[in-house]
């Protein structure tokens, strides 16, 4: 016995729900904004591993709810951040191990900022960052590697470099500031401004 026609062939309800172009369209919108979406979620969830887990969940929720997205009402990135904020807040409420979090008002403020800055990232900055990182002193490069490649926390880094977590944090802050200043200098040089 065959199944009812509603389940078969083109034009069936299921087929309409799963049109083959749907996910390609979704990916075309999602892929360019995923970096910003990750950054936005980091600003709420902070911890990299947790953020990555929740990001996967958000990606699937976005895909699942893609039919509800109305391009005439907001850019995809803004809609995605709205969904991501909800998922992240729920995650924080569920996860009792999560540290104290920002208030919904503060999260909303960050969200609005990201909406303003949408698409502000650029290749020149990434290029400048790479160049500036090459110029870091060896010890700073080692700290960067330990923190970002090996994802060690400050205590572990401190143990490795025979220092204290507080000193490591200060050193990392100096590295970040140095990199940001270096990037800014390179941008100014490219623009030809002093």
């Amino acid at each position: 016995m065959s199944a009812p026609a509603i389940l078969q062939g083109k034009g069936s309800v299921l087929d309409r729900a799963m049109t083959s172009d749907r996910h390609e369209h979704f990916l075309a919108l999602f892929l360019p904004c995923q970096g910003d979406l990750r950054a936005f979620m980091r600003s709420i969830l902070w911890d990299r591993a947790r953020c990555e887990d929740v990001f996967q969940e958000v990606a699937l929720v976005l895909w699942r709810q893609f039919d509800r997205y109305d391009a005439t009402r907001s850019p995809f990135g803004a809609w995605a951040r709205g969904v991501a904020a909800n998922v992240a807040i729920k995650h924080l409420q569920r996860d009792r191990r999560a540290p104290m979090a920002l208030s919904p008002e503060a999260i909303e403020a960050i969200q609005e900022t990201f909406d303003d800055l949408e698409g502000a990232g650029d290749t020149a900055t990434e290029e400048a960052l790479r160049e500036c990182m090459r110029r870091l002193p060896a010890r700073s490069q080692a700290l960067v590697q330990l923190r970002y490649r090996h994802a060690l926390n400050l205590s572990d880094i401190a143990a490795r470099v025979k220092s204290t977590p507080d000193a490591v944090q200060k050193a990392l802050t100096r590295v970040r500031l140095a990199l940001q200043a270096c990037i800014e200098r390179r941008h100014r040089a490219l623009r030809g401004t002093p």
């Binding site: 609005e112 990182m133 960067v144 970040r176």
Partner: peptide, 30 residues
């Protein structure tokens, strides 16, 4: 808000550059 967003974005960029090995920083110098 912009300052926070810039901070997080920069952090993400830094992580990505180091993690993908495109930073040009040699592995664990010294």
């Amino acid at each position: 808000g912009h300052s926070v967003a810039r901070t997080v974005r920069f952090e993400g960029m830094l992580e990505e550059a180091v993690r993908t090995g495109t930073s040009g920083v040699p592995e664990m110098p010294e």
